[in-house]
Simulated assay, not measured.
Amino acid sequence: MQGISICGSVASPHGANCRRACVARNSLRLPYEINNAVTHGAYSCHWHMHKLHKNTNGRRMNATVRTNARWLFGGEGRSSDARLERSESANEDILIFYFQMDLQTRIQYALNIEQFDVAKQLREKLTEIETEIIRQREARRGSSKTEAQDKSLDLLRVRADLQKAIDSENYALAAGLRDEIAKLEAESLAVSAKALAYQNVKYAFRLGQKVRHKVHGYRGVICGMDPVCCESKSWMETANVEKLSKGPNQPFYQVLVDVYVDPELLVAYVAEENLSAAEESEKGRFDHPYIEFLFYGEDTAGDFIPIKQLREKYDQPRYEASGDENDNDGDTSS
């Protein structure tokens, strides 16, 4: 995200030896360490990701989770086609979401201990972050009604200029304006189609659902979705999006990849046509450092239950797996 550096702490499993970790984006820094009373002890570790200590086939895997996009995506390792779909912007989006929740928790804690000046400062930082997130989301997604209307107004203006050029017999200018009109008409059509996709989108998969990649075969978990591909042109070229049968104009999903399958892929951005729902036999153990702050746990079907804030982010309803109707996921609203 342009213009923001957000700093927090990464804690050990026992709450000691906290270290600073940042997602650095250009020049604006928004540190939110406030003082020892707030940032140390059990509170500072409440929302923080811990070291993973997992056993697989009798072997222990020790991995330190660092909230640093460069570490996550800049390391050396064997290349694979699957890694063409890894997305630094999707990873940063998840981390920014984590820091938002962390700031909200810090604000509440500051209020609880009556540090009102601190709470005010944190609110201001949170407002800055949320404003920038909205701005970047609009820049990535675009295709709003306002953008479509702006294109229509531009067309009217250029057509009026074309008529004036014809009336004054300035045919060279008229030829240039005709080319500009053709370009604007193509852009207007694309904007309108994308805006329509946002209004009428129907997702085949839901937040927390375990899926399998049809091409690369790895298991993943849905943690975000867009009605169309919202990545950069360079990313789409690298990921060969144009070779997809539906191209970029289909839902794309942020997918957490099991760290035991590929610890360097971590977060992929995958087209809907390349995903299928995981079979019951495939819904076994799934390990990823982001699971603990994005989901409450697993439902009776073996999928993950997204936290309320994640559902609100993507405007998704609460899903009840068969047999979970009486379970409480920490949210009483739908």
Rank of each mutant, 00 (worst) to 15 (best):
K164G: 10
A301W: 04
Q316N: 06
G58M: 02
F286W: 01
Q199V: 11
Q199H: 07
E85C: 07
K210T: 08
N57W: 00
G3Q: 15
V228Q: 01
D150L: 11
A301E: 03
S245L: 10
R219M: 00
E114Y: 15
S89G: 07
V201G: 01
I107S: 07
E33N: 08
D167F: 00
I96L: 13
N249A: 10
Q115A: 10
A190P: 04
D299I: 08
A301V: 00
N62A: 08
Q115V: 02
A82K: 03
S281R: 00
K313T: 08
E33D: 10
E273I: 02
W71F: 06
Y171E: 14
L294T: 01
M225R: 14
A190W: 10
P306V: 04
D154N: 05
A268K: 01
Y109W: 13
R123E: 14
D93S: 13
D81R: 04
Y198Q: 14
E325G: 05
I305N: 02
D150N: 14
V191F: 12
H216F: 03
G208I: 05
K283Q: 02
S232Y: 02
Q163S: 12
R78L: 11
V201H: 05
S9C: 12
A160C: 13
K54N: 09
V10F: 06
C18Q: 15
Q316E: 08
D303K: 01
S27P: 09
K51V: 09
L196V: 11
G58R: 03
K145D: 13
H216E: 04
T300R: 05
A16H: 14
D331W: 08
K313I: 00
R66E: 06
A174W: 00
A182H: 13
L155W: 01
T56G: 05
G220D: 10
G8K: 15
V118H: 02
K125E: 03
L162W: 06
S281L: 04
E231R: 02
N328G: 04
A21V: 11
G297W: 08
S27D: 12
S192D: 13
V211F: 04
A37S: 14
C7H: 14
